[in-house]
């Protein structure tokens, strides 16, 4: 078996998710090559070559790949990947964008967002926002797979010595072009990949009160989220929504403040390693999934939490 891992990067550095995906490839077993497609991405290729367990790094360095346009990446990966038994990428917004194109061009099914490898063709993945877990067998000759990075411990970033090979395959589909991008200026981590998330619900009463959560989040290096109830009430914009129709998160620590724990919300965060709930209603369903529950008025508890954290951090 031979596995092609598509590196996730920003043309200057390799994203850690790539190391998680290499770990997934190791779990499947076989030779592991990494494809780095980008523009002026030599440093990324060097970093990928050092990752543990990588056999060969293939580099497609061209303006056509500089902005990771799915139309161009799809054609490139389908062309390079057709000689492999498995093609893997992280299930971030880049992988989710181009991988189904790869699968369609190769006329094979894709297995999305896998969280466990059972065998070379059988994988475990969440469905219904994690409310059910499916074991699926891929019957096509080439397995196109996106991986939930947080479900696999990363391989070591150093210690490998893979060869680096330049590819001169240029695929420019001419269907799309980059206009501009607006990356979050906030120093807070992205909600979807943050190690700690602090979320507020309807109990926050208004948008201004979310500042209390932001202060706690900044102490912890956490992202700030919200329940659908808080979004629907207009407290915060809906890109902060954690839940079945919002972001699915699985941080090391999830702190739910003033959130009752509707099904829709639990579906988006119940894979978190440790859950803390602060709510004045001791009957709130959120306490049924919380590792640590504090029955308290959040307007007293959150400022106290900030003070206590300052003492220990």
């Amino acid at each position: 078996m031979s596995i092609l891992v598509i590196a996730e990067h920003d043309n200057s550095s390799l994203k850690q998710a790539t190391l998680n995906v290499v770990a997934t490839a190791k779990a499947i077993g076989g030779d592991i090559d990494v494809l780095v497609a980008g523009e002026n991405c030599g440093a990324v290729a060097e970093a990928a070559a050092k990752a543990e367990g990588v056999n060969k790094v293939l580099v497609a360095d061209n303006a056509a790949y500089g902005h990771f346009l799915a139309e161009n990446l799809g054609e490139l990966v389908a062309e390079v990947g057709k000689g492999y038994s498995h093609i893997l990428a992280a299930a971030g917004t880049t992988g989710k964008d181009f991988m189904p194109r790869v699968a369609a061009l190769l006329d094979v099914a894709q297995v999305s967002d896998i969280m466990r490898v059972e065998s070379e063709d059988t994988f475990v993945r969440p469905i219904y926002a994690g409310n059910a877990i499916a074991t699926v067998k891929a019957n096509d000759a080439i397995k196109v797979i996106t991986v939930r990075p947080t479900a696999f411990d990363p391989v070591a970033a150093e210690g490998g010595s893979a060869s680096v090979e330049q590819l001169d395959v240029v695929k420019d589909a001419g269907l799309s072009s980059f206009v501009n991008e607006e990356l979050a200026k906030s120093d807070r981590p992205d909600l979807g990949s943050a190690g700690i998330v602090v979320s507020g619900g309807r109990g926050m009463q208004n948008g201004d009160n979310f500042k209390m959560l932001e202060q706690v989040a900044d102490l912890l290096g956490a992202a700030v989220g919200a329940s659908r109830a808080a979004v629907d009430a207009g407290f915060v914009p809906n890109d902060m929504q954690v839940g079945q129709t919002g972001k699915i998160v699985a941080p090391q620590l999830y702190i739910a403040v003033g959130i009752s724990g509707a099904i829709q919300h639990l579906a988006g965060m119940s894979d978190s390693k440790v859950i803390v709930a602060i709510n004045k209603d001791e009957e709130a369903p959120i306490f049924q999934v919380a590792d640590y529950g504090l029955v308290a008025d959040l307007f007293e508890a959150v400022p106290q939490l900030e003070e206590e954290l300052k003492k220990v951090l």
């Binding site: 917004t93 980059f178 206009v179 991008e181 990356l183």
Partner: peptide, 12 residues
């Protein structure tokens, strides 16, 4: 909507 922000693309 991409991880970490927004990107705008023009499509034929």
């Amino acid at each position: 909507e991409i991880d970490g922000g927004l990107v705008t693309v023009a499509l034929n």
